[in-house]
Design a protein around this nucleic acid. Sequence first.
DNA 1: ATTACTTAGTGTAAATAATACACGCTATAT
DNA 2: ATATAGCGTGTATTATTTACACTAAGTAAT
Lengths: 229, 229
Amino acid sequence: MKEVLPKFNSTFSIDCVLFGFDEGELKILLIERNEEPFKDWWALPGNLVEEEESLDQSAGRILHELTGLSDIYMEQYYTFGDVARHPQGRVVSIAYYALLRLGGDKVVKPVSNYAKQAYWRNVKDLPRLAFDHQQIFEKGMEKIKRRIKHQPIAFELLPEKFTLTQLQNVYEVILNKKLDKRNFRKKMLSFGVLRDLNEKQYGVSFRAATLYKFDKRKYAKLFGKEISF
Amino acid sequence: MKEVLPKFNSTFSIDCVLFGFDEGELKILLIERNEEPFKDWWALPGNLVEEEESLDQSAGRILHELTGLSDIYMEQYYTFGDVARHPQGRVVSIAYYALLRLGGDKVVKPVSNYAKQAYWRNVKDLPRLAFDHQQIFEKGMEKIKRRIKHQPIAFELLPEKFTLTQLQNVYEVILNKKLDKRNFRKKMLSFGVLRDLNEKQYGVSFRAATLYKFDKRKYAKLFGKEISF
DNA sequence: ATTACTTAGTGTAAATAATACACGCTATAT
DNA sequence: ATATAGCGTGTATTATTTACACTAAGTAAT
């Protein structure tokens, strides 16, 4: 291999905005840094890309290290490359958002070497973030707002079996507005991608709601047809 | 600055899908490479990012070198980082699409050091491309297809003064389908972002059409309101 | 001047989708 | 038995989308 390429010292990193939905709130996972720069600051989870891994692999690895899970829905959405975004050198960061089911059994939060601890934080009440992570978060938030109108990503935040009210909550909290219950149900059911499980919630202290499941096969058959909220 | 960062030799490049609209066709600018790797192949214009420039600056520079213009509409849309995408080393490429008015006075096509020549090619008839540029092009094409449904990017491909038929042609060629003339005009005018210039085409060998202009100020006032095709 | 040609420009009816809106039902808890 | 909390449902109105075809205006050729 000719060594013509690197003209200066540079590297790439991945930053992940990992969304979770819990107790009616949209949250993201933040880590408290244990290393310079920005020691003791809150930051998005992220890391350098290694030599023999693609960007998607790297993002998958980071999410796996954080959660122990390896099938998390994720998507690359923007790359941040301002010259001075990292105080120690030229680091271009490729941002991913990821969506996680938080139902009941909270996700594991292992401590990695560069982080003291990781916490779920409501997106409406975030602390000041390290680097340009505020900007990275905001762009990710915008992205899922647009995305949820046309793509079935809401289901990635819910348990496999969910009620229509829970689904509506996800839409409301991401779009940041109230939706009409009857219209929501009418429209959502009209897409024909939910399977009624003929099953009810269990253990709730009020009338139990019907459980539904997202039907990927029916969704695939819609092909190009636009879903719109 | 602590030299802790670069863990291996790597670098980033920018690749640009520069779209132009001319003679009713959507075209992109391709260069014929004059350097290894992929010498004599067709490729998207692109280059390495330099030490002291941001990604946007780098894309702007590349477009300027190609066209002599410096106010080209462009947008970053995806980053390609497979390990083996570049045969000479680890090169992560940040992709931009750009939109250019080609009306009449064809854009300049200077020859740079690594390219023999640059040519406009109809997107429906592209040659085999170097690296993963086919994939980069396709993703860019998808991007503008989605984008044109909600954002006023069609105007970036037209001269300042344009007819409704020309505008419709842009939509048709990007969306790759015929649109109904009456419905198109009704809807487009209903957004209220076109200014009727009370002026006619000149020098055409048939009935001259009314010229319009995109009114950015009126568009800005729409704010969040969705435009949809 | 007449004619042929080419594109510009226009309206309506029908179907579909979006919105606004309120109350009885059902399971649980006491 | 009763209170409570969330479930589940329908209709009328309005707005949007779609389908569809002819006349008008200018140019070019004879």
